[in-house]
């Protein structure tokens, strides 16, 4: 069986890809997808720890995360659609509504 480190490295790589995606990409949909990648990276880490520590906790958490991720994706995409309808664009750099 491959050692724990291998799994963790894959997980870290995936997470980094997600982070970079959020920071670099301009399309909102890609940003949302990147967030999903980050979540799945975390899932991978949880599963691996669970397996190697012989505990069910990791898998339990992953189910939670998956449920949350599904909800988050739904809400996120709904927001994206609304933004697109209002602004005719999905470019994050054009959105600064957080600033009053």
């Amino acid at each position: 069986m491959a050692p724990l480190e291998h799994y963790l490295i894959v997980s870290a790589l995936l997470f980094t890809i997600g982070v970079m995606g959020v920071i670099v990409r301009r399309n909102v949909i890609v940003v949302v997808m990147s967030i999903e990648i980050m979540l799945n990276a975390a899932n991978l880490a949880f599963i691996s720890f669970g397996r190697f520590l012989d505990s069910m906790d990791g898998q339990l958490i992953v189910f939670f995360v998956m449920a949350v991720a599904a909800a988050e994706a739904a809400v996120g995409l709904a927001i994206v659609i609304l933004i697109y309808r209002n602004r005719e664009s999905t470019d994050v750099d054009e959105m600064n509504l957080l600033k009053l």
Partner: peptide
């Protein structure tokens, strides 16, 4: 506070 999601993410 730039208002851009990216800067918050960083």
């Amino acid at each position: 506070q730039t208002g851009y999601v990216k800067s918050y993410a960083i």
